[in-house]
């Protein structure tokens, strides 16, 4: 395998955990093949050199940020870097940027592409690897052989652990060429909390909440935990909660460490978006609710009594732990 190119972004000058994990992923692959892990940073940040700590052998940074909405411009720049630097694999975290460009990039590199890879590759050959990803809404995992002179992978959260054994490295600046074909008119960030796709703790409400005015108890629990709020589809469809909170097959698929489902029955389409969560807690008054079958912990009873009690217990725990 030739060199590994890891493409990551900075947000408000910082890197997200998913980006750092991609660097560590790139380093692991590079180590097993004796190649270099080259990281390209898109965004304004003074911290690019610190990526050496997570495994970057070389760090490159665009001299000005390229809007990820301009999928052509970003693809062309990455493709050029890949060919100059003898790259055999491009990796990036699976996020809105990757969604726009991995397919494009793989066509440009005349190579295969896999979305949402879950683990380090196996069977690494000079022009192919085997990776795994979740399919059928989390109901199965597929092992996929992907080949070509420059394979493109986007990574699910935790595809690799963070490794911090390296040192700061010097940053090389890459001149961005070409004009823009896409105009970004406006950027609306709608939530102050960690966005759902990145949240490690999620508190979610369903139709069992009865009325949007009851959401205070969900907010309180989320606040106490430092969690992000989510909801089931009928809740979003009836405008009790904003659409960006809708999780499930037709909403967002998430993979938090903890998912607390409150007054949600656990329909298969809902589970499709949440059953990759590490730990699932279900609070429901119906002992036959299907969600209990997919849960790690279940609490059977009236959510209007249980949720405030849970919030108190969390507060008590946080208080005694600080």
């Amino acid at each position: 395998m030739k060199n590994i190119l890891v493409a990551i972004e900075s947000f408000n000058g910082e890197f997200k955990k998913s980006g750092l994990q991609a660097v560590s992923y790139g380093k692991e692959v590079a180590l097993s093949t004796g190649a270099s892990c080259i990281v390209i940073v898109n965004g304004e940040t003074s911290k690019a050199g610190s990526l050496g700590i997570y495994g970057a052998d070389r760090v490159l940074q665009f001299n000005k940020p390229i809007s990820p909405a301009d999928t052509q411009a970003l693809t062309n720049q990455l493709a050029e870097l890949a060919s100059i630097n003898s790259v055999g694999m491009i990796v990036m975290p699976y996020n809105s940027t990757a969604r726009g460009i991995t397919g494009r990039l793989s066509i440009k590199m005349k190579s295969g592409c896999v979305t949402g890879v879950q683990k380090l590759p196996t069977n690494i050959e000079s022009e192919s690897v085997v990776v795994s990803r979740s399919v059928f809404a989390g109901k199965a995992t597929a092992a996929i052989k992907v080949s070509g002179p420059c394979i493109v992978l986007s990574l699910s959260p935790n595809a690799s652990q963070l490794k911090t054994s390296g040192n700061e490295v010097a940053v090389e600046t890459i001149e961005v060429k070409g004009g823009e074909t896409v105009k970004v008119v406006e950027s609306k960030i709608v939530t102050g909390r960690t966005p759902l796709p990145e949240a490690e703790l999620v508190v979610s409400g369903g139709r069992g909440m009865k009325d949007p005015s009851n959401w205070g108890i969900i907010e309180d629990l989320a606040e106490a935990l430092g969690a992000t709020t989510a909801c089931s589809r009928p809740v979003a469809d009836s405008h009790w909660r904003p659409h960006y909170e809708h999780v499930g097959q037709t909403g967002i698929a998430i993979k938090p460490n903890l998912y607390i489902a409150i007054g949600i029955s656990g329909a298969i389409q809902h589970l499709a978006g949440v059953n990759n969560s590490k730990v699932i807690v279900v609070i429901n008054k119906d002992p036959e609710a299907p969600f209990f079958k997919a849960a790690d912990y279940g609490v059977c009873g009236d959510l209007f009594e249980i949720v405030p009690r849970l919030t108190e217990a969390v507060k008590k725990f946080k208080h005694s732990n600080t």
Binding site: S111, G112, C113, V114, V130, V135, G138, K139, A140, T141, A142, A143, I144, K145, V146, S147, G148, V281, V282, F292, K293, A294, A295, D296, Y297, G298, V299, C300, G301, D302, E305, I306, R309, L310, E312, A313, V314, K316, F317
Partner: peptide
């Protein structure tokens, strides 16, 4: 094609749910 699925596997079965008494939320937190 330059991708091909070699095999599928089903996720490991959940160990089964542990029910917690509604009066013992501190137990759940613990």
């Amino acid at each position: 094609s330059n991708t091909s699925i070699l095999s599928y596997s089903l996720p490991p079965a959940k160990k089964g749910v542990k029910m917690i008494d509604a009066d013992h939320m501190d137990e759940l937190v613990r």
